[in-house]
Amino acid sequence: MSDTAVSTAEAPQPGRYTVPGPPPRPRSQLVGTGFAIAAGSMAVAGALGHYMARRHLLDDPGHDWLAGQSVPNPQLVYALITLLVSVVTAHWAHWASRRGERGHTWVGMAITLVMGFAFFNMVMYSLNRMGIELGAGEWENLAFAVTGLSLAILIVGMFYLGLMTLRSLGGSVGRDRSTPLGAAVFFWDFAVLAWAATWYVVFVVK
């Protein structure tokens, strides 16, 4: 390593850049997660676009896609608020990890994951209460597919957070070792945003 450090510190030659030390590739996982988020965003946007295009085609002002079903708005709003709070705790965990505060990191991640499970509990209760019957109609099919896609992304996000939590439990904390956890938190932000968009389109605008 020392030889490299010496050779890379040579004075710049005409037309050449000074080589700045050892190969820097610190953010591969973060950038890779960014691309995965881009793909996921387009998938959600594609599904919601399809959903809205079908709704638009009905050409029947006042038509209610829900056809008499009632949406349990309070539960769904509480679920969304739970998710939003979990974003705060996830960022708290990452913030603590960057400062090497392991206790705060683990508590933050534990609370985030518990809130994630609580969210799924509330949403499944709400959907069961609505009694959406798959195959009963166009709205049911589309709502099930779009909602399911967003929930699947949240499940992936929780899995990713869980894996990176295990990594931080293994000692991967500190300023230079928190990028993987930051990547997982970044994905969680996206997953929550995707759910918020789905909730607004499917259960608020209807």
Binding site: M42, G46, A47, H50, L134, G137
Partner: peptide, 23 residues
């Protein structure tokens, strides 16, 4: 990444609708 992501979302919708009534 961004263009093929769109078809993933569409395939989810198509798969569900094709399997359940084709509305």
């Amino acid at each position: 990444v961004v263009s093929l992501g769109v078809v993933l979302g569409q395939l989810v919708l198509l798969y569900i609708d094709h399997g359940y009534g084709r509305h």
